[in-house]
C-alpha cells in the first residue's frame, strides 16, 4: 500500500442539510493530481460512545477537479445508521485539524471510448461526478446528468451544476415528489452511450433492471456502490497464522478490528467492491455483505471480504 498523506483541513462548509464539505491541503509537499471518479480513504481517530479510542477509515469520492493538485475536496453525508465515521466528520473535524488520507485510487473511471456519457446520481452519489464534469468539458465529451435528491437532506452542489449546453443536468427533488423516469432516460440514448450510476442501492438496482428490460448492454452500465460497513452482531475471530484471538464489536468492521490488533490486510475501497481484502476462512460461517464475490464464491464460504462482511456463526477462524 502507498504511504498515507497528512492533510490539513483548510475549509469546512455545509453544502446541504446533511452533507458537509471539507477542503484538504497537504501539510507538506504536494498532492497528486487524479483521474475522474477517484476516491481517498480518510483515517479518523476519535472515541466511541463508551469513550474508548476508536479509528474509522472511510472512503470518500473526491469532488474537486483532478487537475487541481493544490487541494482535495470531499463531501460527507451524515449517515442515519452511522457507526461513527460520518458523525466524527460532522461533529469533530474543524478547520486547521490534521487528517490522514490514502493517495487517490479509482474504481469508477469513465469509459473514454464512449460516444456519450449519461450520469445518474442519487443524493450524496453526486460526489464522484463532480470530478467527471470538468474533465468531460475539457474533452468536449457529450454528457448529460440526472440528479435525484431530497431537498430536505441532500441535493448538494445544485448551484455549481448550473445547466449549460454541454452538460445539461435534470434535477429531481424527491421531497417535492419529483422522480426520474429511468425508462425514458435509458431508452432514448444513442449507440455508444455509457451509463454511470452512483447513489443508494435502490437507484442502482432500478437502473440495472430498467436496462435489462430495455435490452441494453450491461457492459455499458457502470455503478459505484460504496456501502459503508454496517453494524452487526459481535463475534470472535481466531487467526490461524498469527495465533491471535480478536473480538469484533457490533459497531466496528472485521477489517477495523484486525487493524486495531495490528494485523494489516491489503485494502482499497473499504466498501465491499474492489476485492483487495479477500481473506481465507478456515472455519465458521461468514455473513457476506460485499458486492465483489460471486454467488458461488459466497456459497462456498471459504473466503470473505472483511471490510464489510461479518460472521453468521459466533466465531470465525481465518487463515491469516
Amino acid at each position: 500500500m502507498s504511504d498515507p498523506i497528512q492533510v490539513r483541513v483548510a475549509a469546512v462548509r455545509t453544502v446541504s442539510p446533511k452533507i458537509r464539505e471539507f477542503t484538504l491541503e497537504a501539510v507538506s509537499g504536494q498532492l497528486f493530481s487524479f483521474s475522474p471518479g477517484s476516491h481517498v480513504v480518510v483515517t479518523m481517530k476519535g472515541t466511541n460512545a463508551e469513550g474508548k479510542a476508536k479509528v474509522w477509515k472511510n472512503a470518500y469520492s473526491l469532488v474537486s477537479d483532478g487537475f487541481d493538485a493544490s487541494r482535495y475536496v470531499i463531501a460527507v453525508r451524515l449517515q442515519d445508521e452511522s457507526r461513527g465515521g460520518s458523525v466524527f466528520m460532522h461533529t469533530q473535524v474543524k478547520e486547521g485539524d490534521t487528517l490522514e488520507i490514502t493517495p487517490p485510487s479509482n474504481l469508477f473511471a469513465p469509459v473514454w471510448s464512449a460516444k456519450k456519457h449519461v450520469l445518474i446520481a442519487g443524493g450524496v452519489g453526486i460526489t464522484p461526478f463532480m470530478s467527471y464534469l470538468p474533465e468531460m468539458k475539457r474533452r468536449g465529451a457529450a454528457t448529460e446528468m440526472h440528479y435525484s435528491y431530497r431537498g430536505d437532506a441532500t441535493g448538494a452542489y445544485r448551484e455549481e451544476l448550473q445547466v449549460d449546453e454541454q452538460t445539461p443536468v435534470t434535477f429531481y427533488d424527491g421531497a417535492a415528489g419529483e422522480r426520474c423516469d429511468l425508462k425514458a432516460v435509458l431508452g432514448s440514448q444513442p449507440l455508444g452511450t455509457h451509463f454511470y450510476v452512483c447513489g443508494p442501492e435502490s437507484l442502482i438496482e432500478g437502473v440495472q433492471e430498467t436496462a435489462m428490460e430495455l435490452g441494453l448492454p450491461s457492459s455499458n452500465i457502470h455503478f459505484e456502490a460504496f456501502a459503508a460497513p454496517q453494524p452487526g452482531q459481535p463475534f470472535a475471530v481466531q487467526l490461524e497464522g498469527s495465533g491471535l484471538n480478536i473480538q469484533v464489536s457490533e459497531d466496528e468492521s472485521l477489517l477495523e478490528a484486525l487493524e486495531r490488533s495490528g494485523v494489516e490486510v491489503p485494502n482499497l475501497c473499504r466498501g465491499g467492491v474492489c476485492g483487495q481484502c479477500r481473506t481465507q476462512v478456515v472455519d465458521g460461517e461468514p455473513e457476506h455483505r460485499d458486492s465483489f464475490l460471486s454467488d458461488t464464491e459466497k456459497a462456498d464460504n471459504d473466503c470473505l471480504m472483511p471490510c464489510v462482511s461479518r460472521a453468521r456463526s459466533s466465531s470465525l477462524t481465518l487463515s491469516i
Binding site: S113, K115, G192, T193, S219, N220
Partner: peptide, 10 residues
C-alpha cells in the same frame, strides 16, 4: 462494431 458503439455483450 465496438467502434460504432455497440456494447460488447450485445
Amino acid at each position: 462494431l465496438t467502434e460504432m458503439g455497440f456494447g460488447v455483450d450485445k
